[in-house]
Design a protein around this nucleic acid. Structure first.
Lengths: 327, 327
DNA sequence: AACAGTATTGCAATCGGTTACAAATGGTGT
DNA sequence: ACACCATTTGTAACCGATTGCAATACTGTT
């Protein structure tokens, strides 16, 4: 049987109270001698705290939960790194749960499991919640924050400003002299997609450029969507520049362009949104609007730690343009 | 305050025992009428089980823990997908903890945290444990299994047969007519590295080919190691074929070769070990020894579920060669 | 030596569930 | 009406920690 504080208490001829105080570092009130003795015996017995018991009695837990989709958002690693680092600094543990992809049931299950562990906070990564899961989450009263995906439901989030992303990316190509600019691979049903489209349109109209709705291709930010977009633009592309809505889309466009014999950047300029490592290992390297994913993770944790009462939050992290070889 | 079974009991005019039985589906012994009533009230009150309490009293948990490094992450997604799917089928929850990269302290911390939650089993992904962490893990008596990384310490693992990987990859190039074959980017200190080197050497000697130790470059399976390896091989490469020890290494070699004006596969053939999606989105697409990562995840979970008493396991999952454009 | 004041320690209740065992209830056959 | 057994329900102990409060042990002062 695994040793408990009772065993230690017996061995050390003290009460469990004393053992508990020593082992949870309330050392302001125990003598050095006793502390040392208790710690030594705990060590000898190979004692491990039972977290369930602690959480039960203290009614708190020092765990942050991250929920993400399995959809291969290749930037989630960066966000998670930020979360982990910041959590670690604050003595918190992190547990991660994959909610399947677009599987409402699994999503619900995942959130339910998390809630039943009464974690300290929940970070939702690039996750679009269906209504039922959303109710569950709100009802739980556990602080939460969406990362990387904003939303229009008045739920707290930290993300890039997607209007700005759409605007800046487009503006960048305009400044390079392009007049026919595509926007590829985004989900025009999502809040994020709408924002980017608005930014894109605004940049065009601000510069007195007309827009052809054929230039916008929809999708779910995947590699395949990139290929499809390029096929749509054609061998003699109807656009001279394109804003790829994820790095994978960018690479897809790039590869299909190569197949078509369309030279990048000579015949087609590409600017890719995200700026993950992928941009640098393809050829030509992709110019990108780089998001501050790591920072999103950091900020997300900070927000949860300071939110005693549920409060509103809409925070944008910075974006920057990194020019590489595709423009 | 969050409702407990006591609240439900009061509301339903039954005892907590009854509520507990209903809500944990021991319905073999409760009347339908009571069950329905209890469930309805639980629903109304927005009741959520307190997992800590359950785990405390039952002394079990239905959680599997995954520990991984931040390092060679580009195949861990596949393994995790396998783990998740299989865990889900068995009604288990999965929590994931990143142990930092090569940070012994963080590794130890991570394992300690997991153990204190007394999970049902631990899956260690591509993780090389230092001695202290290893002791802790063994001492905990919790079933565990290493995935993707074999080891010589008599600890259970599921991985590919790295000797075979080294052998097959080399043999493949030999069959293509290559006589000077490099082995790039592996850690020759690790068990895995040693196995691959043995396989590589055996394939050469079986075919009466001599070996030049300059052809083996060491590293930690990173993109940068790929670049370095190619720089080492030179503009007029001393090898005509190379076995890249990870997809990232393969891409690194590819890109540096392009910079050198070395044409792949004409001047240099590349076969890459892992076979993740990356192989298909670079140009030319990389031929690969593809590992069964998803299957590793499945098998890992199954092993943990069947291991009442800690037992030995050395299981190899299948590998296959997928020919693409780089050879 | 007595006493106040402070530093340590221990008692016992508590967190929210589960479960062995006992008690109550209900149905059946005679 | 009663014995008998099966079904359903309840009582109370327990899991392993934390913590308010009371009890005890020390310390220095007069």
């Amino acid at each position: 049987m695994k040793p408990t504080i009772k065993d230690i208490a017996k061995e050390a001829h003290v009460s469990v109270t004393t053992v508990s105080r020593v082992l949870s570092n309330k050392n302001n009130s125990n003598s050095d001698k006793t502390s040392k003795k208790v710690r030594k015996i705990a060590q000898q017995l190979g004692y491990r705290k039972n977290t369930s018991a602690v959480e039960l009695v203290t009614r708190t837990s020092n765990v942050l939960a991250v929920i993400l989709t399995a959809t291969h958002t290749n930037f989630s690693d960066e966000i998670i790194a930020g979360i982990q680092d910041q959590a670690y600094k604050n003595g918190l543990d992190v547990i991660i749960s994959y909610a399947g992809e677009n599987n409402a049931h699994r999503q619900f299950q995942s959130i339910k499991t998390i809630i039943e562990r009464s974690v300290k906070g929940i970070l939702l990564l690039a996750l679009e919640l269906d209504e039922k899961s959303r109710q569950l989450l709100i009802q739980s009263k556990i602080p939460y924050v969406f990362l990387s995906l904003a939303n229009d439901k008045k739920m707290p989030f930290i993300s890039s400003n997607d209007f700005q992303i759409g605007y800046q990316a487009t503006k960048y190509l305009i400044d390079k002299g392009h007049k026919k600019i595509g926007l590829a691979g985004l989900d025009d049903k999502s809040f994020m997609g709408k924002q980017r489209i608005s930014g894109y349109k605004k940049a065009l109209s601000d510069n007195k450029l007309k827009l052809d709705s054929e230039w916008i291709t929809t999708g779910l930010f995947t590699y395949q969507d990139g290929l499809n977009s390029m096929k749509h633009y054609g061998k003699r592309p109807q656009v001279t520049g394109v804003v790829a809505n994820s790095d994978l889309v960018g690479v897809g466009i790039l590869n299909q362009a190569r197949k078509f014999g369309v030279k990048v950047p000579r015949d087609l300029a590409i600017i890719s949104i995200d700026g993950t490592g992928l941009c640098q290992i393809v050829h030509p390297q992709l110019t990108s609007i780089t998001q501050s994913f790591y920072e999103m993770g950091i900020n997300g944790v900070n927000f949860l730690l300071n939110s005693k009462e549920p409060r509103r939050l809409s925070k944008f992290t910075s974006i920057k343009i990194e020019e590489r070889e595709s423009t």
